[in-house]
Simulated assay, not measured.
Amino acid sequence: MRRVVRRLWKNYKGWVLALAVLVVLALVPLPYYLFMPGSADPVEPVVTVQGGHKDERGKLLLTTVYSLPVSNVYLLAYGLVTGSEIEPKNQATFGLNDADYEVLMKQMMEGSQNSAVVAALRYLGKPVQVVQKGVEVRGILPNSAAQGILHQGDVITAVDGQAVANQDQLVRDIKSRSPGQTVRLAVKRGNAALELTVPLIQLSGSTGQDAPQTGLGVQVVTVQKVESPVRVDFQTGNIGGPSAGLMFALEIVNQLMPGDLTKGHIIAGTGTIDVDGRVGQIGGVEHKVVAAERAGAEVFFVPADALPQDHNQRDAEAAARRIGAKMRIIPVHTLAEAVMFLQSLPVKPSSSNR
Rank of each mutant, 00 (worst) to 15 (best):
A119S: 09
V28F: 01
A186S: 06
Q209L: 11
L22I: 11
H151N: 13
T236E: 01
N143P: 13
V130R: 03
G95S: 03
D160F: 04
A249P: 12
L60Q: 12
W15R: 11
V290K: 01
L185K: 05
D210I: 13
G14V: 13
R189N: 03
T182V: 10
S344A: 15
V5F: 15
K126L: 15
L80K: 08
A116E: 02
P29M: 00
G280I: 02
L19A: 13
P127V: 05
S67H: 04
V221H: 06
V226E: 03
N143W: 09
V187G: 00
G277N: 11
W15H: 13
G139Q: 08
G95I: 10
K188D: 01
G139P: 13
Q50I: 08
V187A: 00
H311Q: 12
T270K: 07
A306S: 06
Q152C: 02
Q219K: 06
A99K: 06
M257L: 14
A146C: 08
N143A: 11
H333N: 08
A120F: 14
A268M: 03
S39V: 14
H333P: 01
Q202C: 04
I252M: 07
P29S: 04
Q313G: 06
G148E: 15
K126P: 13
Q343T: 09
L185W: 14
Y12W: 14
G148W: 13
V21C: 07
V339S: 00
P258T: 04
V232F: 07
T207M: 08
A20F: 09
V198G: 04
Y74E: 00
